[in-house]
Design a protein around this nucleic acid. Sequence first.
DNA 1: TTAGTGTTTGCAATTGCCTTGCATTTGCAT
DNA 2: ATGCAAATGCAAGGCAATTGCAAACACTAA
Lengths: 142, 142
Amino acid sequence: MDENSKYKDVLNREGIKSTRHRNAILELLEESESPLTAEQLYINLRDKTASIDLSTVYRTLDTFASKNLVIKSNRVDDGKALYELNHHDHKHHLLCVGCHKLISMEDCPMGELQQVLKKKMDFDVTGHKLEIYGYCRDCKKL
Amino acid sequence: MDENSKYKDVLNREGIKSTRHRNAILELLEESESPLTAEQLYINLRDKTASIDLSTVYRTLDTFASKNLVIKSNRVDDGKALYELNHHDHKHHLLCVGCHKLISMEDCPMGELQQVLKKKMDFDVTGHKLEIYGYCRDCKKL
DNA sequence: TTAGTGTTTGCAATTGCCTTGCATTTGCAT
DNA sequence: ATGCAAATGCAAGGCAATTGCAAACACTAA
């Protein structure tokens, strides 16, 4: 199978064409275990094989976001846009204030709380946002 | 008491001068029940009495943030910087997406989670942000 | 395979948020 | 009041992200 059409089906299902760049961006996002900035993707792609323009990266990511293929968020410290594959499962991250690494949490601690709120406060939870800051294993040593 | 030195003590305690602009910005932040952008503050101040420069607003807010008088964050959807008064008390709210009411939660559900994270992930929590969206008792009926 | 069509991309210019350098003004201790 | 460091206005600059347009490309139909 051609490396350049690895995600052809996914893309066609969304009604957009399968291109070299789009496949490459999806591949990079899939490889990364933490969200990436547009520039990180840009540099990575440029250094590999495929020369690409930064505007194409942004446009591609916006397209993906509008199709819900990727989730766009904003980094807490500097507000830069971050993009990650939408795995459709609910996820939270730990943000290390030392090295700015984002670590994924395997499960969501909101499950039980949701029950409690419904019972005690009569409040129906439809969504939530949880960000946790602190020091990761590596930064604690320094 | 002079309107322009309402927060003189607070400011002096942080080792910075009490000025017209700084007092006005603190006042606006205190009046607002939600975080504001620099521009919202700017427009509000300009329209009032005090002509002020946008760069002064940013500098003032940065100063306040470095003194922990205000908390700077980034809006989730567009990444714009938001500023709110640091009330120092640890609190979480339920935000009703129906009537936009803010309901205080009496206790913080992060306590136990903090222990778990330290043990399982070797991650030292220094802070967190939790926002819960949903429907309150009254809005559920509609 | 090839021609045709709408989509995607590169490039350059531009926008929008925010920051910085510098001259002037202001708050405040003396 | 006077002097000095801190705060401010103004204009220019920096950087992430967006946009207009022409060229390149993916896909369809013949």
